[in-house]
């Protein structure tokens, strides 16, 4: 009996958020399936799979930044700017492969701008990335002249082949997202850089005394977060084919909501990708279910906002509030 109790405590300590999220996810699926005939269908699941990819990729990057104790709120602005520039390259006749490389590289560069602002200019990450996000967004409006941009109609098909294509009913985008999770997982668990992300987030003084360059680690984390914004941009183009300069402005908090829901602590030093992906799934299923049920947008906003508060509350109860 003691043993069982101990094991349960152990399980809760290590996997608490994952377990509760899995239960929540199952409950939501049952709820929506029983209230709408359109929810539990392969078509809708493919839809959910596709819809969660952009959010999922960016949430993985956001998790990396949060493990170091930094909240990056500029990701959707990076997505917008990289996306706008990518469409312009496409329209100028640049091959899709090069556009992809550009999206990754420019995501990394904008992430490096964040890194510079936070580690060199020493601006607090939240303030820093709100500000850079504003700057990136401004450039996006400038580039697009505030209009919606679309891919060249002649090349659009090759993008759609990736963004809308699927294998065994699973969208390619979903595999791309899994690839991103795999790479980040290996980085976090099996490389020195990954270990140092946790160390710096957990105790920056101890890390410094152990000879770790705090600046390098924080810089690197923000670059990864930026790259996932770039990947998000490429996924968006290949799924939708066009980009509005205000893309993601309303979705800004979705990434953060998903990550916090996943039990990633705001105080840094811990975080599991399994939590992140489950957080993303719960959030996307709630949104999808509400849309299918025809629930009005304002109710959806109220629900989403409340979810964030509940997620943060649970997080703080588990001892993961902000350190600042």
């Amino acid at each position: 009996m003691e043993d069982i109790k101990k094991n349960i405590a152990e399980l809760n300590k290590n996997w608490g958020p994952q377990i509760s999220l899995t239960i929540a996810l199952a409950a939501l699926i049952i709820l929506f399936s029983s209230t709408s005939p359109f929810f539990f269908t392969t078509g809708n699941f493919a839809n959910i799979g596709l819809y969660m990819t952009i959010l999922g990729v960016m949430a993985a990057g956001c998790t990396v930044a949060l493990i170091v104790g930094m909240l990056d709120v500029s990701q959707y602005s990076i997505l917008a700017l990289v996306g706008a520039a990518s469409i312009m390259l496409d329209r100028a006749g640049v091959h899709m492969g090069l556009v992809l490389v550009f999206a990754l590289a420019s995501g990394a560069i904008l992430g490096a701008v964040n890194g510079f602002v936070v580690t060199v200019l020493k601006v607090h990450p939240i303030i820093g990335t709100i500000s850079t996000g504003m700057v990136f967004r401004g450039f996006t409006y400038m580039l697009t002249a505030s209009r919606t941009l679309s891919l060249n109609p002649d090349t659009r098909g090759t993008y759609y082949a990736i963004g809308r294509g699927s294998l065994w009913g699973i969208p390619y985008s979903f595999f791309i997202m899994l690839g991103v999770y795999l790479i980040i997982h290996v980085t976090l668990k099996h490389t020195k850089f990954g270990r140092y992300l946790f160390a710096v987030g957990g105790n920056s003084n101890a890390s410094f005394l152990a000879g770790i360059s705090l600046r390098k680690i924080r810089f690197g984390a923000l670059m990864i977060s930026g790259v996932t914004g770039g990947i998000g941009a490429f996924l968006l183009l290949s799924q939708v084919g066009s980009l509005q300069p205000n893309v993601g402005e309303a979705a800004l908090l979705n990434v953060i909501a998903a990550v916090l829901l996943g039990g990633i602590s705001l105080s840094g030093g811990s975080g599991k990708l399994t939590g992140t992906i489950l957080g993303v799934m719960v959030l996307v299923v709630i949104q999808n279910g509400m849309t299918i049920l025809g629930i009005q947008t304002f109710w959806q906003m109220i629900v989403r906002g409340s979810i964030i508060i509940i997620a943060v509350f649970i997080n703080v109860m588990r001892g993961g509030g902000f350190k600042y």
Binding site: R195, F198, A199, G201, G202, A206, G269
Partner: peptide, 26 residues
């Protein structure tokens, strides 16, 4: 080697990780 007054361990890392922090084997 120094053990600082404010304890130079990272709470969120495990014992083994802390012992090898800064001198990881790869």
């Amino acid at each position: 080697e120094t053990v600082y007054q404010d304890l130079a361990l990272v709470d969120t890392l495990n014992v083994a990780n802390n012992l090898f922090l800064g001198r990881e084997e790869q």
